[in-house]
Every structure is written in structure tokens, then in C-alpha cells.
Design a protein around this nucleic acid. Structure first.
Length: 405
RNA sequence: GGGAGGGUAGCGAAGUGGCUAAACGCGGCUGACUGUAACUCAGUUCCUUAACGGUUCGGCAGUUCGAAUCUGCCCCCUCCCA
């Protein structure tokens, strides 16, 4: 009989707050272990982070992994038979699954688009007849481009799938609107997401202990960029039986902090909050200051694969460093930098036509970028505990974005 | 010595009289990427320009209103037979 950590319970404790702000350092206790916050959760959509092994994830001090109920829905029975996501994937630590709500947008109004942070005016929704996902009150009908399968997920299905997958933390089923959606559409979508939240809680209750350990549920706050919507939905969700909250939406960079403040001022202080899908350094620091405890994002690994590597003094494009014998970042403690890989060597792997070289490049640089972001959260936590978060944030941003902050 | 096939932009390779500054691929250069339809995508790549314009398809000379495309000669490469 497997024994689970923390008495098989989910809880959150705040260790120290940022004076005068909404942020804090804390610990999330889950049946598969603790998460010291603020923390970055690595994205392993299908149960594995692309090009990074579980051992390598541990080696960069990753604390938790996020997977996706949508992508794993067909595998969920097999996962359940193998004891849940942590056991099945080999990650063996705290996990979170997304509800599939993101795919409502990425296969629907945002199909083929970029989830932009700073180009609101250029964003146009995909024509409804070209979308692969269609929203109605019951849930979402969609066509899976990978499996060529026509399928349906509503709040009940999402909860059933997530409870079979068995992450420690689940997300209520939500609809992510795009930057192109109007206020009127956001009112409609938000009301639907709120009804879906109630249905999610009801269904989740039925299955949340099925795998022998307790699985908790976060409600996802939407409401776009409108203060009245964000505050009203946060107030409602604060009264519901959620274990924590997801902060969702497509954000404009300059308004991220303010939107998070509206939400977190209304949400209960003693429950953890997860900022969904963001992790550029400024997003992490602003998010932490404004009350987000955990983060997840595909950017560190995707940008690494696409040639953008993080350094203390801002990102570099690896393609511009032919023959360079510099390390990616000589202040970095990641396994790639400690092993002495130079920019020139990595560029050669990046440009190579050989598949094994590209894979090695993807592996080495994903590890670097993940460690960079994870270290940022570790340092932010230390700074909160030491009472100097604001100084740390200012100094970090000045180095990383010399022309912006 | 005889026979055959070729020489197109940085490279490979289409094109075989006007719609061709010349498809496409690679390489090069820019730029994007945030709950992963993403080991991806979008530009750009003869010279010059804000636009215009200029010079090209081994070389030279022709035919034609018009040639990378047709003709002649020359140069070079590959293969086969002696």
C-alpha cells in the first residue's frame, strides 16, 4: 500500500509576505510532496517535458510538473491503472493538470494565432468556420488534429479525465478568451465559465479520491482585461469550495500586474494561486509581487528549441555566436553551463542537419532555460524571506531588460 | 582520337522564345514564440533605390520587335569507347 505525503492532504501555508504587496513565500503541501513558492512548474503536456528526462528535471531543482487533460484524455485509463500521473510518468512528485480550457482558445478563436502579450490591435479571431473547437453551454465540441478524432469535453468530462490522470492539483474547466474578444463576449464567456466552475466542483467531488490519494481543485479566474469582471468573478469564486485558484486569460504585458491585483485583492489570502501559462522573467516577478504563488509556461523550453537562451543580461540568439567560446551565462549553475558547453558548440548543434545533434541541442538548452527560470523563483523566494524582494526585483529587471525597466 | 551529356544566383536544382531578376530546396541574414496543432513559424537573400533603375543564366558573335531559352564559333566539366 502506497503511503502519501502530508497525510494525503492538500494545504497551503504562508511563510512570509512582501510588505505592502499581495505576494508571499509559502509551501503548498500535496500528497506527492511539497512545493516551496513562488515556484515554476515545468510543462510536460503529455506527461514528459520535451527533450528533458525526469532525472534532468530533478537536477534543475524542478518542484512540480504540469500536464494536460486534453492531451492525455485517451491515455487517462492507462494512467489510472498505473497509479496516477506521478507514478505513470516517472516524475514522482507534485503534479498539476490543466483542464483543456486552453485548447478551447488555441483550437478555436485563436487557431493558428500567437498568444500575444503586446499586440492587441493586430489580434483577430479565427473565422468560426475554420475553427477546430466550438463552445456551447454544455462544453466544447472539437476536432483533435493529432488523432483526427471528433470529441467533446465539458466540465464533467474534464473532471473525470483529470481524476483518472490523478494529478495533485486540477483546474476547473474554463474558457480562455482571446485579446480580440469584446467586453460583451467576455461577459457571456465569463458567466459560462462560472457555471462550469459549479459543475466542475460537483463532478470533482465524486472522483477526487478514486486513486487512493486526495486530488484538489483550483477554480480558474477569467474576465479578460476588465476590472469589474475580474473582481466580480473573483468574489464569487472566493465563496466556492476551491482549494486554490488559477489566474487565467490572455494578458497585455503592461496590464498584467494590475489585473492580477484586482483578482488577488478579492481572493482568499490563505489559498494558493497559479498564474497560468506565463513565465518570462518580468511576468514571474510581477506575478509574484501581485500574489501568484506558482507558474507554468512552455516558453523556457520552446524558446530554447527555437534558439533563444536566457542570460542574466537578457536573452541571446544562439545563431549569432559562431565560434564563440563563451558559456551561455557564466553566472549560471545549470548542468549545461557547469559542464562547460560553449555558445559556439551549442550553435553548431543547433545548426546541424543531424537529428541527434538537434536533439542534444534541445536537451542542453531546455535544461538551461528551465534552470534559469527556476533559479529566478528560488531567488525571489529567498528575497521575500530576507525582506528585500523589491530590491531584488528592481536589480534583476534592470540587468535583464536594460532598456525597459 | 571517336561518342554522349552538361555549364542557371553562395550551393543544389527547375525553366527550353515574351507572363523570368529567374520556381523550389539548402545555406545565410532578420524577426516571432507565454495553461505546447510549435525539433516550429514568418520575412529576406544579384547590385542600387524612398520609389525608379541597373547588370544577369560559361564566353563572344548572330537570328528576332523580344533570348537563360534558337544559330555559329570558342572555353570548361563529366561519362563511355579506343
Amino acid at each position: 500500500m502506497t503511503t502519501y505525503k502530508n497525510d494525503n492532504k492538500f494545504s497551503f501555508e504562508i511563510i512570509k509576505e512582501i510588505p505592502g504587496k499581495l505576494g508571499r513565500a509559502g509551501i503548498i503541501h500535496t500528497p506527492h510532496g511539497d512545493i516551496h513558492t513562488p515556484a515554476f512548474m515545468c510543462v510536460g503536456t503529455n506527461g514528459q517535458v520535451r527533450f528533458v528526462s525526469m532525472e534532468e528535471l530533478k537536477s534543475v531543482n524542478a518542484q512540480a510538473m504540469l500536464s494536460n487533460g486534453y492531451h492525455l484524455r485517451n491515455t487517462s485509463y492507462e494512467i489510472a491503472e498505473n497509479g496516477g500521473l506521478a507514478a505513470w510518468s516517472g516524475w514522482d512528485g507534485p503534479t498539476l493538470t490543466d483542464s483543456g480550457g486552453f485548447q478551447v482558445m488555441s483550437l478555436g478563436s485563436g487557431l493558428g494565432k500567437v498568444v500575444s502579450m503586446d499586440r492587441e490591435k493586430e489580434v483577430v479571431n479565427t473565422d468560426p468556420q475554420d475553427r477546430l473547437a466550438h463552445v456551447c453551454e454544455d462544453g466544447v465540441y472539437f476536432h483533435d488534429p493529432f488523432t483526427d478524432q471528433d470529441d467533446f469535453i465539458g466540465p464533467e468530462e474534464s473532471m473525470q479525465i483529470q481524476c483518472r490522470i490523478g494529478a495533485d492539483i486540477h483546474m476547473a474547466y474554463d474558457e480562455l478568451t482571446s485579446l480580440a474578444d469584446s467586453y460583451e463576449y467576455n461577459v457571456e464567456a465569463l458567466a459560462r465559465t462560472e457555471r462550469w466552475a459549479i459543475r466542475s466542483i460537483e463532478e470533482h467531488k465524486k472522483h477526487c479520491d478514486d486513486l487512493g490519494y486526495h486530488q484538489s481543485l483550483y477554480g480558474v479566474i477569467q474576465g479578460g482585461r476588465w476590472e469589474d469582471l475580474r473582481r466580480s468573478t473573483s468574489k464569487k469564486f472566493a465563496q466556492m469550495e476551491f482549494d486554490g485558484y488559477g489566474l487565467g486569460g490572455a494578458f497585455l504585458k503592461e496590464s498584467l500586474g494590475e489585473i492580477l491585483r484586482w483578482c488577488c485583492e478579492e481572493l482568499p489570502k490563505n489559498k494558493p494561486r497559479h498564474l497560468l501559462g506565463l513565465s518570462h522573467p518580468d511576468d514571474i516577478l510581477i506575478g509574484t509581487e501581485m500574489g501568484a504563488d506558482t507558474f507554468d509556461c512552455v516558453a523556457p523550453t520552446r524558446e530554447a528549441r527555437h534558439g533563444k537562451l536566457y542570460t542574466k543580461y537578457g536573452p541571446i540568439a544562439i545563431s549569432k555566436f559562431a565560434d564563440s567560446d563563451e558559456l551561455i551565462d557564466n553566472t549560471c549553475d545549470c548542468p549545461t553551463c557547469k559542464a562547460g558547453w560553449t555558445r559556439g558548440q551549442l550553435r553548431a548543434l543547433y545548426k546541424s542537419q543531424k537529428l541527434e545533434d538537434k536533439h542534444q541541442y534541445n536537451n542542453l538548452t531546455s535544461i538551461h532555460n528551465l534552470r534559469f527560470i527556476i533559479r529566478l523563483t528560488e531567488e525571489a523566494r529567498e528575497a521575500i524571506l530576507n525582506g528585500n524582494f523589491e530590491e531584488y526585483k528592481k536589480e534583476f529587471l534592470k540587468n535583464y531588460y536594460p532598456n525597459k525597466y
